[in-house]
Amino acid sequence: MTLLLTEEEVDGLLDMASTLPVVEDVFRAHGEGRATNHARRRVALPTGGLHVMFAGAPGMDAMGLKAYSVSSSGARFYTMLFHPESGELLAILRSDRLGQLRTGASTGVAAKYLARDGASTLGLYGAGWQAESQLEAVAAVKSLSRVIVYSRKEESRKEFARKLGQRIGLEVETTDQPEEPAAQDIVVTATSSKDPVLKGEWLSPGAHVTAAGSNSLLKSEVDREVIRRASFVCVDSKEELGLEAGDLLASLETGGLLPEAVFELGSVVCGHVEGRRSQEDITLFASQGLALQDMAAARLVYDRARERGVGREVDF
């Protein structure tokens, strides 16, 4: 029997506190070679597009895929979860909230392993849906003393500050000066901008940067100076280079960054690669997202749904 779960049901079963450890675990499994992940594949049509990503790992007892469509009416996200031994289709989930949480959790994992000791301030670019989970995740792994957010619209950043300040129990400052967030210990970009919102010249020594808003070769949230100044650059998966990592494309094409100098975050999590070597290093995580993260979160949702009797069963 296959379990069907709505967006509202998934939202009620998943939160950042539970998403962070399962995402960290799959980064570790990926770094140790105990998981299979394939980068997003796309179908583009004049009226819309279809995006599919798939993965599996014995350790999380799941394999599956996420597919989502994008059109003028918005995006629709679905995850299909299979049992790795029987091949049974365990569940079909609506997964917009799931994707938001696992994207934020990836940023949290990166901050945990790459931010310098004692990092306590966060600068955030973007005040939308995805920016919410970015802040939640960093606040969950670091003891933050200051958060400052910049976005193009004053109204949106002030509403974001009010809402997220209540959620994390810390005042969230706003600014109309784009260089201010870059002066913090941890800097996160979560925008829809096609052009850089973060300039490398603004960064302070020792900063950790996560660029989380671009998963296209046509978009870059950080300029080449960010990459030039970074002592360590990593991605979710090196398979993404040339497919999705728009933040790195210009530097890769001009030789400012060599493919051999780009690492995978999972290798840092499992201890195979040393990320930060000094308190003065600038580190960069260009986040594109792994299907493994979706599968880990989906498996957690499925197990909780079974325990709590949530969802509807369908016999295909």
Rank of each mutant, 00 (worst) to 15 (best):
A35E: 01
G311P: 00
G255C: 12
A62V: 11
E171L: 15
S231D: 14
I186F: 07
G12P: 08
A286N: 15
L265P: 06
L218M: 14
R276C: 13
Q166D: 12
E244N: 10
L243G: 08
I148L: 10
E32C: 13
V52N: 06
L101V: 04
P46W: 01
S156V: 13
G12Y: 02
A286D: 15
I168W: 03
L252S: 08
G59C: 13
L81N: 02
Q184E: 12
D25C: 15
G59D: 12
L203P: 10
E180Y: 13
L203R: 04
E24P: 05
S86F: 04
E264W: 00
P178S: 08
Y68N: 03
G87Y: 09
G33H: 07
R308D: 04
I168A: 08
L257N: 01
G64V: 07
T47M: 12
R28H: 13
C270T: 03
L284M: 08
K238Q: 09
W202M: 05
R299F: 08
S214F: 03
D96Y: 08
G271N: 05
A245M: 04
G275I: 01
Y302N: 07
Y150T: 10
R306F: 06
A211I: 01
Q184A: 14
A44Q: 15
K199H: 15
A127M: 06
V314C: 09
S133E: 02
G33T: 07
P181F: 06
R306Q: 15
S143E: 15
G99I: 01
S237H: 10
K158F: 00
K153W: 11
V301H: 04
T2Y: 07
K163R: 12
G118Y: 09
E307L: 10
S71Y: 03
C270P: 13
R277T: 12
S214H: 02
L144Q: 04
G59R: 11
G87I: 05
L284W: 12
L98W: 01
G255N: 07
W202F: 10
L252G: 04
P178M: 02
L292N: 02
L93P: 04
R224H: 13
G56C: 05
D247V: 00
E136P: 02
G200N: 06
T191L: 09
A161Y: 06
A296Q: 11
M80E: 12
Y302V: 04
G104Y: 00
P46N: 06
Y150R: 06
